[in-house]
Design a protein around this nucleic acid. Structure first.
Lengths: 220, 220
DNA sequence: GTAAATATAATTTTCGAAAATATCTTGTCT
DNA sequence: AGACAAGATATTTTCGAAAATTATATTTAC
């Protein structure tokens, strides 16, 4: 993997996780120290992140971490529901044994991690893998591409809440995930889409209640 | 505008228009001669184009123009229909006087250009402006962003056919556009979405019949 | 004291050489 | 002849200095 790619992945994770705060200027000299790379790979990574709307750029005035706001969160959530519902319908229609197996495996791994009390990036990876497994058989590169971008965009709002137990435990996420997987494997697209919609909307509503754009954290 | 931005826009147009052929390697030395820029702005432009799926990259082996294929065309078309139908519904729900005025103006400009027999980039700009005007009031940055990417992706298949008159004149595109605008302004979202779906599907079907991946042209 | 003009500093952007990697050519051995 | 290694060539990737631009501080004029 080239240096530019490494910087891209690290910086992306730092933005999504909040290590780099929304609005924060990304000065090249500071980035050079942080990621140990020259200007070229840094700028290449920043260009890619700009394309994912994680970074804002103003010509000749540099880059900043994209801001967070409730309207933007809802925009990302609504669009994500549109994309993933369609991808889920297609997956249910086209998915074979491998798809079913992938969903079961991802659900099990997520449940194990959650029950064990995993937190932060570890749990987050399992969660992303589960939602990806549901739509993996949709046979549309565009839908998968958009879903990945929107996952990162919405994840920025959820990450701060992951550390605090209160929000997560208030709802029974384990049951929601299990029902979603069950409906998908039962090949009932309408039911699965309703569950997906509810799952994302409840999450967004919970985050909206405790959203603090200043601290960019979602108080638990 | 910085040099990197100029290169990005020129290169994007060259890929969409077919001046750079699908599969063609984008050697940096050749690009440097063509666009008159150093390695840094060239690579930044290529990184952005990769994010839009117009360019493929293999680490340490360089960049190529993304290939075209019928399955990929249909994927882009189907996804575009999903995105633009939703954006159109939202625009119809939220659009005010400015939106209506924008649609009427864009339709008129497109009709003038088409009747005058404009071709290539000139007509293409009017066409894009019309479809953007329809969804401009949707109030979703994500939907507009995706629609723009998908427009470029599908435009690559349509550009070669623009030069030849036969395909364009076989259908009455003028009537289709006018009916679409009428349904939108009449605030009948279901009717408008049906027209949009039919418009894109007929276009894609026509292109599919004369698709030639080798020459990457769509014979008229 | 305020505002315009100028000088200074900080920052982004661009360039081309150098390093790293891949690809092609050639020669050798079985 | 075919397979394989060694060297030569071509290409990508990275670096840091230089150029271009913006931001800040200082001076000057009124």
């Amino acid at each position: 993997m080239t240096l530019a790619e490494q910087v891209y992945h690290q910086m992306r994770q730092d933005i999504v996780s909040g290590a780099l705060r929304p609005g924060q200027p990304l000065r090249l000299e500071a980035m050079r120290a942080r990621y140990g790379a020259g200007f070229s790979p840094l700028r290449e990574a920043l260009m890619r992140l700009q394309g994912e709307r994680l970074v804002d750029q103003i010509a000749l005035r540099g880059f900043t971490v994209a801001l967070l706001s409730l309207p933007q969160m809802w925009d990302a959530v609504e669009t994500r529901i549109l994309i993933e519902q369609q991808a889920l319908r297609l997956s249910i229609a086209h998915g074979g044994d491998d798809w079913e197996t992938g969903v079961v495996a991802a659900l099990h791994a997520l449940t194990l991690a959650a029950d064990r009390g995993d937190t932060g990036a570890a749990l987050e990876d399992r969660h992303r893998a589960f939602h990806l497994a549901l739509i993996a058989a949709c046979r549309s590169e565009w839908l998968l591409d958009f879903a990945a971008k929107l996952y990162a965009a919405t994840d920025r709002y959820r990450y701060p809440a992951l550390a605090s137990v209160s929000i997560a435990s208030a709802r029974n996420l384990r049951v929601e995930h299990a029902q979603l997987a069950e409906a998908a494997l039962a090949r009932t697209p309408d039911a699965a889409c309703v569950l997906l919609d509810g799952h994302y909307r409840r999450t967004a509503t919970a985050l909206a209640c405790s959203f603090d754009p200043e601290r960019m954290a979602c108080a638990g």
